[in-house]
Amino acid sequence: MNRVFVISDHHFGHQKIIDFESRPFASAEEMDDYMIRQWNAVVAKNDRVFHLGDFSFYNKEKTKAIVEQLNGQKFLILGNHDRGRSKTWWLDAGFDEVSEYPIVYESFYILSHEPLYMNKHMPYVNIHGHIHSQKYEGLHYFNACVEHFDYKPVAFEDIRNSLAAKEEQ
């Protein structure tokens, strides 16, 4: 059975993110290699991964070389650092699908880069990135940034289970 994963904010090639987020790497190259290994440790060839933005700071050639190393079908929802490049640029870089806007998954989960405003009366869950090591409290938000999952995409069933466990508390 093919699995579905979610992840956000790799910032491949972004040396300064190491200091901004206290990532445990000496260089962007070391970070990139680790993140590729972590991705492939959990994602199989036929799995699907929703990347919630801020994927790469490299040019198209280097970005494509990274995308080609990553297992799974890759769906990119553009983040604030991705939007300077066209949808076609990202497709040419190897993504299977690209969305400029948030998408609704399974009629209940809103996948976006930036967290969306969710009031307590809304029944939906916003799975997002953008805020890195910060977290919003409550049942309406799930932060999929790499910092929370040792740089591994998180399985959608694990997200669902963690939200159900929160609801029971």
Score class of each variant (00 low, 15 high):
3 R>E: 15
46 N>A: 12
124 Y>R: 06
51 H>S: 12
117 Y>Q: 12
153 P>K: 12
57 F>I: 00
169 Q>F: 06
50 F>P: 05
160 R>K: 13
87 K>F: 06
165 A>E: 11
151 Y>L: 08
16 K>I: 12
46 N>V: 02
48 R>D: 01
74 K>Q: 13
43 V>H: 00
37 R>T: 02
107 S>K: 14
42 V>E: 09
52 L>C: 06
107 S>I: 01
87 K>H: 10
65 A>W: 06
117 Y>L: 06
160 R>F: 00
112 S>E: 04
55 F>Y: 10
159 I>D: 00
125 V>H: 01
113 H>R: 05
154 V>A: 05
13 G>V: 09
102 P>C: 03
18 I>K: 11
74 K>M: 04
107 S>E: 15
17 I>E: 05
31 M>L: 06
37 R>E: 15
169 Q>M: 14
10 H>G: 02
66 I>H: 08
84 G>K: 10
121 H>L: 10
103 I>C: 10
43 V>G: 04
162 S>Q: 13
44 A>R: 10
24 P>L: 10
148 H>R: 11
135 K>E: 14
84 G>Q: 09
58 Y>K: 09
72 G>R: 02
22 S>F: 04
47 D>L: 11
1 M>W: 05
36 I>T: 08
93 A>E: 05
76 L>I: 08
100 E>R: 09
70 L>A: 08
37 R>M: 09
21 E>K: 14
110 I>K: 06
12 F>I: 08
83 R>M: 13
50 F>N: 08
110 I>A: 03
31 M>A: 11
103 I>Y: 04
160 R>S: 08
118 M>H: 01
33 D>Q: 13
143 N>E: 03
14 H>W: 04
142 F>D: 01
142 F>W: 10
94 G>D: 12
75 F>Q: 07
133 S>Y: 09
7 I>C: 12
6 V>L: 15
46 N>C: 03
97 E>P: 02
15 Q>W: 03
25 F>E: 06
37 R>N: 09
15 Q>K: 15
7 I>P: 06
129 G>D: 07
49 V>S: 08
87 K>E: 14
73 Q>K: 12
128 H>R: 07
121 H>V: 07
146 V>Y: 01
126 N>R: 02
27 S>D: 05
95 F>M: 10
63 T>P: 07
22 S>K: 15
